[in-house]
C-alpha cells in the first residue's frame, strides 16, 4: 500500500482479482536442482473457503503449497518461476519481504511443532515479533481469542504456563493453528495437518477448519479423500507435478473431468 506509484489500472485489476480469488497462480514452475517438481500450474483460490489439494505422494501438492508463503525460499536448491499473487500483489516481486508475507499467509505443518515453551508463549510469539500488541493486556486478549478460535481455550485456560509440548497430539496441532491465527493472517496453509492425529483429534481439527473458513482463506493438503470431501469447497488434483484439474469438491468427487482424478479417487493408484 505504500507504493505511491500504483496506478488506477492496477488498483482496478486488484479489485477485480479480489472478487473472484484470494490467491491466483499462473505458470508456476518449481525446480529442485534439476528436478522439475511443479509444471506450469495455474490455479485460483477463492476467499473464505477451503481448497483441498489432493494427489498421490510426490505429486508436488506440498511443494506448491509452500510456494504460497515462500517457505521454499529456505531450501537453497529450490527455484520458483511464474506468478503467484495474493489480492493481486505478486508475492515473488523483489520488493516483497517474505517475513511480512508469512504474517499474511500463515502455515500449519504436518507434524505438530509447538515451540518448547509455554502454551501462552507459543501463541504470543507471533504477535510479539510483529508488534501487534503494545501492552500486556492486549497480548493477553490476542492469545485468548486465538486459543478460542482454535477451540483450545476451554482445555488450556487454567494452564497457560504449562509447556506446549506437554499437550496431546491433537491439542498440539490446534495450538499450532492458534499460533498461526494469532498473527491475524488472511490465508492459512495446512500441510496434511491431521496425518499424525487419531480419528477423534482429526474430527476436532476438521470441525475447526470448518469454523475458520468464515474468517480465513484456507488451503489444505491432504492424503485422505474423505477429509477433502468433508472439509473443502473446492478441490485441486495434482499428479506428477501437474495440476490435473480443479473444481468444486462435489463435482470432483462425483463427476471429474479427468480420468486420472477418477482413478485416484477410486483408489486405483496412489
Amino acid at each position: 500500500m505504500n507504493n505511491m506509484s500504483a496506478t488506477t489500472t492496477t488498483m482496478t485489476m486488484k479489485a477485480a482479482a479480489m472478487n473472484q480469488s484470494k490467491v491466483s497462480a499462473r505458470g508456476v514452475q518449481v525446480y529442485y536442482g534439476d528436478k522439475h517438481a511443479i509444471k506450469d500450474v495455474a490455479i485460483e483460490i477463492h476467499p473464505r473457503s477451503v481448497t483441498a489439494f489432493i494427489g498421490p505422494s510426490g505429486c508436488g501438492k506440498s511443494t506448491f503449497l509452500r510456494c504460497i508463503n515462500r517457505m521454499n525460499d529456505t531450501i537453497s536448491s529450490c527455484r520458483v518461476e511464474g506468478h503467484i499473487a495474493i489480492d493481486g500483489e505478486d508475492i515473488y516481486d523483489p520488493k516483497v519481504d517474505p517475513v511480512q508475507l508469512r504474517a499474511k499467509v500463515g502455515m500449519v505443518f504436518q507434524k505438530p511443532n509447538p515451540f518448547p515453551k509455554s502454551i501462552y508463549e507459543n501463541v504470543a510469539y507471533g504477535p510479539r515479533i510483529h508488534g501487534l500488541a503494545s501492552r500486556k493486556s492486549e497480548l493477553d486478549d490476542i492469545v485468548a481469542s486465538a486459543l478460542q478460535k482454535a477451540g483450545l481455550w476451554n482445555e488450556v485456560k487454567d494452564r497457560l504456563d504449562a509447556p506446549g509440548t506437554g499437550l496431546s497430539g491433537g491439542q498440539q496441532q490446534r495450538l499450532c493453528i492458534a499460533r498461526a491465527v494469532a498473527v491475524s493472517p488472511e490465508v492459512i496453509l495446512m500441510d496434511e495437518p491431521c496425518s499424525a492425529l487419531d480419528p477423534i483429534a482429526t474430527a476436532k481439527v476438521e470441525e475447526l477448519i470448518h469454523e475458520l473458513r468464515e474468517n480465513f482463506t484456507i488451503v489444505i493438503v491432504t492424503h485422505s479423500m474423505q477429509q477433502a470431501a468433508r472439509v473443502s469447497q473446492r478441490t485441486a488434483m495434482f499428479h506428477l507435478g501437474n495440476l490435473v484439474e480443479v473444481d468444486d469438491t462435489d463435482k470432483i468427487f462425483t463427476n471429474p473431468d479427468d480420468q486420472r482424478t477418477q482413478d485416484y479417487i477410486m483408489g486405483r493408484f496412489g
Partner: peptide, 15 residues
C-alpha cells in the same frame, strides 16, 4: 535441533 522448529518460527513470520 529439529527443522520443524525452524519451520514453525518462519511460518509465523519470524526472520
Amino acid at each position: 535441533v529439529p527443522p520443524s522448529i525452524r519451520d514453525a518460527a518462519l511460518g509465523v513470520g519470524a526472520s
